[in-house]
Design a protein around this nucleic acid. Structure first.
Lengths: 181, 181
DNA sequence: GCCATTTACTTAGCATTGCTAATGACCTAT
DNA sequence: ATAGGTCATTAGCAATGCTAAGTAAATGGC
């Protein structure tokens, strides 16, 4: 019950809560990480920036997730459908991609299959493996979900100034690089 | 089982999965980001930017959540502890802040209380209400968790150029504004 | 060529977290 | 004083994650 007991068993984040805190008062100062290169000037204090960016990202991601809800496609289903839209993949491959365990993926694929969005096929080369293939219904649903998923964000972006849009574009690139590491 | 049955009952996002798709092929086009500055003309295609930004944010948030795990404080517990660190709050207020329902908050507070990180107090002015107060242990744990939470991000930020940091700072501000709407 | 090991998926069961519904205690207004 | 609303808790369901164990098929050693 006390959560701590749950650790050592949890291997990756699987919690869901908001994380929508106002954490202005992080402890601030130069913060966790080291200076860098030429942190000169007063402006480049890493700690507060990291704290602020974290809050901004978590809050935005929460909004994105919330807004994406209600489309009859859970995030997991969406991810899998998207992955399978290019080429059929096995359960294990999908699980690895999504960073979950195979049984969890089996369950997701079961749900998608029950809805007729994917189909299981035999792999002639290895009959142990099940290939998950997208159906026409699945492809249609994916396209629909895809646009709805981005809709909320697209609306807000459209409302910003061109300068802000440029910054967001750059930030997207930077964030991708950082999280890829 | 089929998820669709679950809708109309779900009111907000509560799923957890990766969402860590390689959705490069969203509609794409000119590649990652748009030019800049003077976007009008053909350059300011909102759709691809929204799609890319969405992926960047979701992926980064996922990393943040994953990296934050293993500190014996779930995101929910962390949020509550942080909220309560400034002033005691009632269950209902906390629930509203976190955008969850009161029973869920009761459960979180129960866990924190069991760990001795918060304490329930009576509110003399309204005996229906329970005030959740942080304990010394809770405050200590919060500070510890706080730095660890931002550490991952701070490290990556520290490795970027000053220009990138400036962009991220701006982006954080913009994202805050957008998600606040 | 046959048996042992490994691999891929499924089934079974537990844990966490969110929600709704219903209950009990208390405040507020008539 | 009583009726109705508000706050918190308890009870019970749904979804998603995990581990452990079981089945089917491929691979390897003798």
């Amino acid at each position: 019950m006390t959560y701590a007991k749950y650790l050592g068993y949890v291997t990756q984040g699987q919690w869901c809560m908001t994380d929508m805190v106002d954490e202005k008062s992080t402890t601030a100062g130069p913060g966790p990480a080291a200076p860098v290169a030429k942190p000169r000037g007063r402006g480049s204090s890493i700690g507060p920036l990291a704290a602020e960016l974290r809050v901004a990202i978590m809050r935005t991601s929460r909004r994105l997730r919330t807004e994406a809800a209600g489309h009859a496609l859970s995030p997991g289903q969406y991810s899998v459908l998207n992955a399978v839209s290019k080429a059929p993949l096995g359960i294990g491959q999908l699980a690895e991609r999504e960073m979950i365990q195979a049984p969890s993926m089996t369950r997701i694929v079961n749900a998608l299959e029950a809805d007729g969005l994917v189909a299981r096929c035999d792999n002639p080369a290895d009959k142990r493996q099940v290939l998950v293939k997208i159906t026409d219904d699945g492809a249609a649903r994916l396209i629909e979900a895809r646009s709805k998923r981005t809709q909320w964000l697209a609306t807000r972006i459209a409302a910003r100034s061109p300068e802000d849009r440029a910054i967001l574009a750059e930030a997207a690139r930077i964030l991708q690089e950082m999280s890829a590491q």
